[in-house]
Design a protein around this nucleic acid. Structure first.
Lengths: 341, 341
DNA sequence: TTGAAAGCGTTACCAC
DNA sequence: GTGGTAACGCTTTCAA
C-alpha cells in the first residue's frame, strides 16, 4: 500500500549512466541539446523505471502550474446541473486538456465567494469565473478578483473591467431579448409575464431589459410584469406561476431560461390554459432539454460550449503573449421560433 | 502586468522580525508552538504583505497536492451535459472543496483513455473515474488505473477490483431494472423495446439485464428487443425509434435514461401512438428533466449527487487512514411510477 | 554535447 | 517558544 519512494531524475540518470541535466533535457524534448545515442539510453531508462516527472517540483521551479481554476458562484449545490454551466465548463475543459493544462473547478455560494479556497490558494495560472448576485455584490467580487491579480475570464458579466487583467466573454442577451420582444409584439401581446429565479444573474437581467425595450418602443401600451421564483427548481417555478395565474392571465409567459419556461408551460396547461392558443410561451437557451416538451418552445439560443472553448483559448493566449488581445467578446444569439408562440 | 516577485515566508519573517519557521508555524495554525504575541506580529505582517503560501513548494515538500482528479470517459465532447455526470461531479466537488481539496476534471474519449494527460501527470493525490465501453476495454482501463497506483474511486463499475487500491461506487441498476420489469409485467406487456445509445455503459447494461430477468421469470413469453441509437442525442434517438415503429409496435418502450425515453415518447406521439394507451413508456434516472415532459414518465431514480459526495468522503478517508474501509458501495434505486405506464 | 552547482519556497527535525 | 539547517525534485546558469 505505501508508496515506494518515487523515482526521480537522479535515479534515471544513474541507470542511464548520464547526468541529471541530460535526463531533464530529454524529458522536456530539448532536442538538439542531446545526441541521438544518449537520448535512446535515457528513454529506455525512463521506461524501465516508469519515471514520472514530479509536477510540484517542476512548477515550483518554473513558477507556473499549468492549471486554470474555474469558480462558479451559485446558490444551487449542484452548480453543474445548469446546462449553460455544464456546457461552458465542458468546452473550457476540452480546450485546456488539449493544451496540457488542467482545470480546477469549484462551486461556491455567492455570500462566500471571497472565502473560496480556490481564490486563496494561488495555485492556478489563471482563473475563470461566473458570478451571480446584484450588480453591487458582483462589483465587489470583481474587485476581489482584481486584487488576486491573476489573468482571468469572467463570463456573462456586464460590469466594465477596464484596467484589470480580466477579459469578459458574454453573449448578446440584451439583443436576444429585444428580438424575442419584437417577435411577441407581432403576436399582439398586451400583457407579458417574465419569470426568473430570485437569484440575480446578469444575463437574465439583460434578457429582461431587452424584452422591455422592445415593448417600450411600441406605441400601444404593453403591460410587463416580472415574477421571481425562489429557485429555478421545477416545483418552485410552478408554485410561483400558479399563484399568479390564480388572479391574472397574461398573453405570454417568458422564462428567463427554457427550464423555467417549460415549468410554466406545464403549470399553465395543468390549470386549463392552452398553449399557444390561450397563453404564449417562450424561453432562453435552446439546449437539448427544450425538445423534451411539447409544444416546441420558442427560444433564444446560447452558445455555451463555444463560449467555454473561447475562454480557454483567450486565457492560454494571454498566458503566452502576456496580454489579452480582446477584453470583451460577445457571442451572438438567435431567435428560434417554435410552436409555443 | 508582470507579476512582481511573490512574497515568501522569508519576506514575512523579516517584516515580522522572527524566523522563517515561526511564520511557517503560524501559517499552519500550529498553535501552542508559538506565543500569542509573536502570532500577532506575524499575522499583521502577513496581512501587510498580502502573503500567499506557495502551493507548489508546500506540495513538493509534503509530497501531496491536496487535489483529486476526475476523469470522464465519454464520446460526447460536452461530457458534463449528462445530468448523471453533472450531479456526480457537483457532489464530489463540494465535498472536496469543504475539505480544502481541489478537483481537477478532464473528459476523454474512450479510445484515448490511457493517453489522458491527467493520468500521466501524476499530480493528484487520488483519482475518480467513470468509464464507458465494453467490458474488455474497461478491464484494460482499470488495469491501467491499477498501474498508476493512486487511490481511486470508479463509478458504476461492475468489474471486480479486488487487490487494487480502488473502491467502486455504483447503484442498484440491476435491481432497479428488475423492479421496473416486474411492474411492466403487471401491465401485461408482451413486447418490450429497450433503447440505449451505442456507447456501452455498465450501468445501462445492468438495467437491461435486470429488465430481462424480470421478464424471463414470467411463464408467458415476453418478447424483448434492444435498439442502439448512434448517440443519446434527441434527434438520433428519434430517428432510431421512428425506423423501428415503421415496421413493429411494442407494448412498451424503455429508455436506458429518461432523456432517451422522452425522445422516444415524443416520436411515438408524433407518429400517432398514444402514451400510455397505445404504447407504455419508462426510463431511468428521475432527474428534473423528467418533469418537463407529459405524460409524466415512469422511472427508476438515481442518487447521482449523493454518489459524488460519497466518493469524496471515501477518498479523503482513504487518504487519511491509508485504506478504504469499504471497497464496494451500492446505492439503492427506487421505482417511481408516473402516468406513462 | 554534457555536467556541476545554485536555487525555487516550503516543512521536518533538531538544537537552543 | 524559537530558529538553523537540510532536504523535496526540478530547471536555470554557467563551465567544461
Amino acid at each position: 500500500m505505501k508508496k515506494s519512494k518515487n523515482t526521480t531524475l537522479k535515479d534515471v540518470s544513474i541507470v542511464a549512466g548520464v547526468s541529471v541535466m541530460t535526463v531533464s533535457n530529454v524529458m522536456r524534448g530539448k532536442m538538439g541539446a542531446v545526441s541521438e545515442e544518449t537520448r535512446q539510453k535515457v528513454e529506455s531508462a525512463v521506461k524501465q523505471l516508469n519515471y514520472k516527472p514530479n509536477v510540484n517540483a517542476r512548477n515550483l521551479r518554473a513558477s507556473s502550474s499549468k492549471s486554470i481554476g474555474m469558480i462558479i458562484s451559485d446558490n444551487d449545490p449542484a452548480f453543474l446541473s445548469d446546462p449553460f454551466i455544464s456546457q461552458l465548463v465542458s468546452g473550457l475543459s476540452n480546450v485546456l486538456s488539449a493544451k496540457d493544462y488542467s482545470l480546477d473547478i469549484q462551486g461556491v455560494i455567492p455570500q462566500q465567494f471571497e472565502q473560496a479556497n480556490m481564490l486563496s490558494k494561488f495555485s492556478n495560472d489563471g482563473l475563470c469565473a461566473i458570478l451571480c448576485g446584484d450588480e453591487q455584490s458582483r462589483k465587489r467580487n470583481i474587485a476581489f478578483l482584481k486584487s488576486i491579480d491573476l489573468p482571468s475570464v469572467v463570463f456573462q458579466e456586464t460590469i466594465n473591467c477596464r484596467g484589470a487583467d480580466i477579459a469578459i466573454i458574454r453573449q448578446e442577451d440584451h439583443g436576444g431579448g429585444y428580438e424575442l420582444g419584437k417577435h411577441l409584439v407581432k403576436r399582439k401581446v398586451k400583457k407579458v409575464l417574465f419569470i426568473r429565479s430570485i437569484t440575480d444573474w446578469p444575463a437574465i437581467e439583460q434578457r429582461e431589459l431587452g424584452l422591455r425595450l422592445a415593448f417600450h418602443e411600441e406605441s400601444r401600451r404593453i403591460e410587463f410584469e416580472t415574477l421571481a421564483s425562489p429557485s429555478e427548481n421545477f416545483v418552485d417555478v410552478q408554485e410561483t406561476v400558479k399563484k399568479y395565474l390564480a388572479h391574472s392571465t397574461p398573453d405570454v409567459i417568458v422564462g428567463g431560461t427554457d427550464a423555467i419556461a417549460i415549468a410554466a408551460m406545464r403549470m399553465s396547461e395543468h390549470l386549463g390554459f392552452k398553449v399557444p392558443s390561450g397563453i404564449l410561451l417562450a424561453g432562453f437557451n435552446g439546449f437539448s432539454l427544450r425538445q423534451f416538451s411539447t409544444p416546441l418552445l420558442t427560444t433564444v439560443t446560447s452558445q455555451a460550449y463555444e463560449m467555454g472553448c473561447r475562454a480557454g483559448e483567450v486565457l492560454l493566449e494571454r498566458l503566452s503573449t502576456g496580454r489579452f488581445e480582446r477584453k470583451n467578446i460577445v457571442f451572438p444569439t438567435q431567435l428560434l421560433i417554435g410552436d409555443s408562440t
